[in-house]
Design a protein around this nucleic acid. Structure first.
Lengths: 196, 196
DNA sequence: GGTCTATGTGTACAAGTGTTCACTAATGTG
DNA sequence: CACATTAGTGAACACTTGTACACATAGACC
C-alpha cells in the first residue's frame, strides 16, 4: 500500500498502476502481491479505509485547535492544508479516486466525504452556530463546504509542495470561498425565495 | 479521439488507456496512431481543445435560453445537466483530467474552467447583477460557482444516465448550492468582516 | 497522367504484463 | 519440540504493450 502511494505521489495515476510495478516499488516479488490483495481494486479499497483514518485524525486536531470562533474558518483551512501537505500522496489518491475507474473506490471516497460533512454539521450544532437553519439546510451547507474544500485540494496538489506563496494563495482563496458560503447560510431561508 | 472517448465512456480511466487499445477500438492498426498523435498525452491535449468547443456551445445555448432572471439558476443548471448527459464521455474525460496524470491536460482543463468563470462574470455584469461586488469579488464568486458545478459533474456521472429521479436530485441540489452562494454574494462586503 | 501527401497496413522485436504453481523461511502457539 | 500460519521466492505461461520500418493506396493538384 505504501508503495502504491509512493507511485501516486510521484505523479502517476492509480488507475494506470500495475501489480508488477507496485511490487517492484515495494521491493518484493510480484507473486507476493496476492498474499495481501486480490486485485488492484482491492488495494484501492484498503487505501480508502486508511484514508478514512487520516481524515479522522485531521478532524480531531481541528476540533482541538480551533479556539476562538471568529477565526474558525481560517484556522480550519490552515489545518486542512497542513494535513494535505503532510499526506500529499494520500490526498492525491483521494482526488484521483473521485473520478477513478473503480466504482467501489469512488463510492468509498464519496462516503468518507459524506461522513466528514455530517461531522462538520454536528460540530456547528454543538457550537450553537447557524441555529436558524433547518437540519436539512445545515447538512446541505456542510456538504457544499466539504466539496469546496475538496476542490481546493486539486489546486493544492497541482502546485509544488514547497511553494509557500502559492500555498498561501490557495489557503486564502479557500477561506474566502467558505466565508461567502457561510454568509449565504447566515441569510438563508429569510430570503431564499427572492432575487436572481 | 472518438475511440478514446468511447472507452472513457465505458468506465475506463484515460490514464490507463494504451495506444493499442485505442486503435483497436477505432478499428485501425496500432501504427496508424502515430499518423495523428505523438503520444497518449498528445491525444489528451487535443481532446481538451475539443472539450473547449463543447463548453462554448453550452454557454451559447445558456445565453440564448435563459430569459427570465428569476429562474436564472434553475435554467442554467438544467442546460448544464442536459449537455453533460448528451456528452457524457466528454465530461467524464474532464472530471478525470482534473486529477489526471498528464500535467498539461490538467492545466488545460483548469484553464477552460477559468475561461468559463470569466465569461460567467461578464454575463452577470451585462445583466447588471451583483453590481455591488468589486471585480475581484465577482470573479471569485464565479470561480466558486464553476467549481461547485464541476463537482456536481462527478455526482452526475456516477449515477446511471437514465435514472431520471437521481438526475433530478442532482439538479435540485446543485441549484440550491448556487442559490446559497448567490445569497452569500448578495450580502458580501457589507459584512464580510463579521460573524463566524 | 504524373507526382505528392496523408492515411493506413503488415511484420517484427524486445520488454512488460497478470497469474499459476510448488517451494522456503520465519513466526508464534500448543 | 512439533506444528500451523504467514509472508516471501523463482521459474514458467501465454499475452499484451510501445515502437520501428518498409510498403500500399487513395485523393488533390499541377
Amino acid at each position: 500500500m505504501s508503495a502504491a502511494l509512493e507511485l501516486v505521489g510521484k505523479g502517476r495515476h492509480f488507475a494506470s498502476l500495475g501489480i508488477r510495478e507496485v511490487t517492484r516499488q515495494a521491493g518484493v516479488v510480484p507473486t507476493s502481491f496476492y498474499r495481501h490483495f486480490r486485485s488492484m481494486d482491492d488495494l484501492g479499497l484498503q487505501l480508502v479505509d486508511e484514508l478514512g483514518l487520516v481524515l479522522r485524525r485531521m478532524m480531531r486536531e481541528a476540533r482541538g485547535n480551533v479556539l476562538q470562533a471568529d477565526k474558525l474558518i481560517e484556522e480550519s483551512v490552515g489545518i486542512f492544508v497542513a494535513h494535505a501537505q503532510a499526506n500529499r500522496s494520500f490526498f492525491m489518491f483521494m482526488a484521483q479516486g473521485l473520478a477513478g475507474e473503480s466504482r467501489a473506490v469512488q463510492e468509498g471516497i464519496r462516503s468518507e466525504m459524506r461522513f466528514f460533512a455530517s461531522e462538520l454539521a454536528n460540530d456547528l450544532r454543538r457550537l450553537r452556530l447557524m441555529q436558524h437553519l433547518s437540519d436539512a439546510d445545515l447538512d446541505m451547507t456542510c456538504d457544499l463546504v466539504v466539496r469546496t474544500v475538496a476542490f481546493s485540494l486539486t489546486d493544492l496538489l497541482s502546485i509544488a509542495a514547497d511553494d509557500d506563496y502559492q500555498v498561501g494563495q490557495v489557503r486564502k482563496r479557500t477561506s474566502r470561498f467558505l466565508q461567502m458560503i457561510f454568509v449565504g447560510a447566515g441569510h438563508w431561508q429569510s430570503e431564499s425565495g427572492t432575487a436572481l
